[in-house]
Design a protein around this nucleic acid. Sequence first.
DNA 1: TTGAAAGCGCTAACAC
DNA 2: GTGTTAGCGCTTTCAA
Lengths: 360, 360
Amino acid sequence: MPPPSNKQPAAAGRSAPSPLPPRRGRVAGGITLLEVARLAGVSAMSVSRALNAPEQVSAAILAKVRAAVESTGYVANRVAGSLASQRSRLVAAVVPSIAGPVFQEMVQSLIAELAARDHQLMLGQSGYGTQEEDALLDAIIGRRPDGIVLGGVVPSAAGRRRLVASGIPVVETWDMVQDPIDMLVGFSHEAIATAVATFLIERGRRRLGFIGGNHERAARRAGAFVDSALRGPARRRAVAVQVETVVAPATVRSGRQALGEMLRHQPGTDAIFCSSDVLALGVVTEAAARGLRVPQDIAVVGFGDLDFAADVSPSLTTVRIDSTRIGQLAARFIVSRSEGLEVGETKVDVGFSIVTRESA
Amino acid sequence: MPPPSNKQPAAAGRSAPSPLPPRRGRVAGGITLLEVARLAGVSAMSVSRALNAPEQVSAAILAKVRAAVESTGYVANRVAGSLASQRSRLVAAVVPSIAGPVFQEMVQSLIAELAARDHQLMLGQSGYGTQEEDALLDAIIGRRPDGIVLGGVVPSAAGRRRLVASGIPVVETWDMVQDPIDMLVGFSHEAIATAVATFLIERGRRRLGFIGGNHERAARRAGAFVDSALRGPARRRAVAVQVETVVAPATVRSGRQALGEMLRHQPGTDAIFCSSDVLALGVVTEAAARGLRVPQDIAVVGFGDLDFAADVSPSLTTVRIDSTRIGQLAARFIVSRSEGLEVGETKVDVGFSIVTRESA
DNA sequence: TTGAAAGCGCTAACAC
DNA sequence: GTGTTAGCGCTTTCAA
């Protein structure tokens, strides 16, 4: 034996020059797979299999392992599992804010659908500026989630590049963008705006208004709304369209104020499309306060079909999106992808519907 | 060179009897710390330090590492980091549902506060029965988060035991329970119910009503409300109190229906305390539909001070909780704990206030 | 079906 | 300040 002999029999070491101190103390931690294996009198691998693929294991081993797990209260460390298997069973979602009820339903269905497939959701909020958003994306990528769901978030060019480079499956939602990063589940803001404009014009409205948040999605909707309102034969188009912008997140209050602005800028407005039911509720409330009758004097269309839309007075005509389906599809796409399954078409337009109620 | 020469220079091997096959193929993965280190011409540890504790590293190395990171687009793998350091920088939160806007504000502030301290939030939804909830807790424990925040969730005895056994810091919120698992940030449902009952009685109301969800928190509030309404000298107490229960989650519709029930069971009810502003909005709406004036004929008090409370008509008198503060404190407690800092008092009552507006 | 070995990518501990 | 070593707790791969 050459120079300094190895003092530590159990540990491996290069054959060559190293002092090899005794056990270096790392913190203990809880019960591990190995301990369960010893207790059950089987190998670690058998425990792992019993837990993750019970069908590959004999009944005898299964019973022993289950008993050992039961008696120790062992809960497998998924951090270690993730590192070894390169699958985290974690999915990240980024939304502008969970405050607006718009993304709630999607997040909820994401959580539920993922839980059913033994995955968990990590939730991030963007909407604090590009800088922070890119940092958030890095924090997410660092966790190597099995997928990333973007809810109404348009990443910066740099963010987009990192996303692509990471190789992590991405599902963009809410918006049928032209050139998706990867997968896509959404609907067309333009199509909605066009449909609502047509809806209002067909009902004889001619002085239209749009109230939306100061973000890109609303802006796109506004543009399409104006365009389609002013298009077509003279008898089938608006004579005026006005757009008002409110600071996101939209509130009932900002809706009330926006109606004031709208009427100041465009007196005689006889129909308003709001980019959120919350805004619409504000508009309806303010209209009542001003002695305007809804829908006789002014028609109001909201967006989201939130839970209160049907039950306020007057009930709200609104655009309904099946957000639950969006969440489900996003979850399924990601889980399937990470299980190596072929998923068919991964660009899905879930469409929308106009729910006609009293306000329009 | 002795027997089977080591074919693989980079890997260690026991000195003794093992066949040592060649490289066993694991999937490649992306760029690793080691590659960045090679590129920068420094050790892996220096890269790790440059990234996590730049103050411990010389400017020269820092620059080299930064350049290498920049050029490769390297994003450190936190799964590996978590396993090695026993700190996941992940915090889990469990709420009954993010659909009810009640927990939204807390979750939002949790996310924000955690992000500011370089932690992420994992979100779970309970409220699918004890079975599922315990499974959810195990899924969470398996990820070894740095902390678990329980929002209005009362774990089963078994769940509680596993939580304690896991050694993971737990913050219970929303409710000043008697015997917390670990840390606690909340308020007293009883104190609120008592305060509201007193508030209404002092304003001359005598036939009180309570409308709440069919869950334990609301039940506690209902009990305390009834108790304190019927306590005290005859001239300062209610002559009747009626409790109506709605299926959670509360909606405007269920509030409307509940008012109907209330008036059927207890005609002449002149004040109602709702366990959510959403219910209160329903009650107010239904009252208007029935020709009852609010607050003259019937006073309504809500709970939550949701964004619309001040802006609907009539504006809602309601109980306000500083949920943002709850989220902040919960995040701070957990992060401090996982950094080994002493946190002082970890049972905090954040209190509440009654916001008086038109409806009462 | 079961087990042994190696290693996922990082950081704690220690030595220099 | 910087590098070396071992190992976090699991799963993949391969061999029996």
